[in-house]
Computed example of a mutant assay.
Amino acid sequence: MWAYRAAGISLPHSSGSQYTLGRPVAQSELQPGDLVFYDDGTGNPAAIQHVGM
């Protein structure tokens, strides 16, 4: 959140809320600064617990 705030972008606090923003991209399309979400392996957005950049 700090890095995005420094770039003038406001993100919600929870990873689940952040997941609903933007658009999904394939792993091969990831760019620096993209958010990567981690869940329990089910693919259920409600199971997202962590996010990395």
Rank of each mutant, 00 (worst) to 15 (best):
M1I: 09
W2D: 12
Y4R: 13
Y4L: 12
Y4D: 09
A6D: 14
A7M: 15
G8C: 00
I9K: 14
S10L: 12
L11K: 11
L11I: 10
P12N: 05
H13E: 13
H13F: 12
S14C: 06
S15L: 03
G16A: 05
S17N: 15
S17M: 10
Q18I: 04
Q18F: 02
T20H: 11
T20V: 04
L21Q: 12
G22F: 04
V25Y: 01
V25G: 03
A26I: 02
A26V: 01
A26F: 02
Q27A: 15
S28M: 00
E29K: 07
E29D: 13
Q31A: 10
Q31R: 14
P32N: 10
P32F: 02
G33A: 00
D34S: 03
D34T: 06
L35D: 03
L35E: 05
V36F: 14
F37R: 03
F37V: 07
F37L: 02
F37G: 02
F37M: 01
D39L: 08
D39R: 05
G41L: 06
T42M: 02
G43L: 01
N44C: 01
A46L: 13
I48W: 04
I48D: 07
Q49C: 02
H50D: 11
H50Y: 09
H50M: 08
V51E: 07
G52W: 08
M53C: 09
M53Q: 13
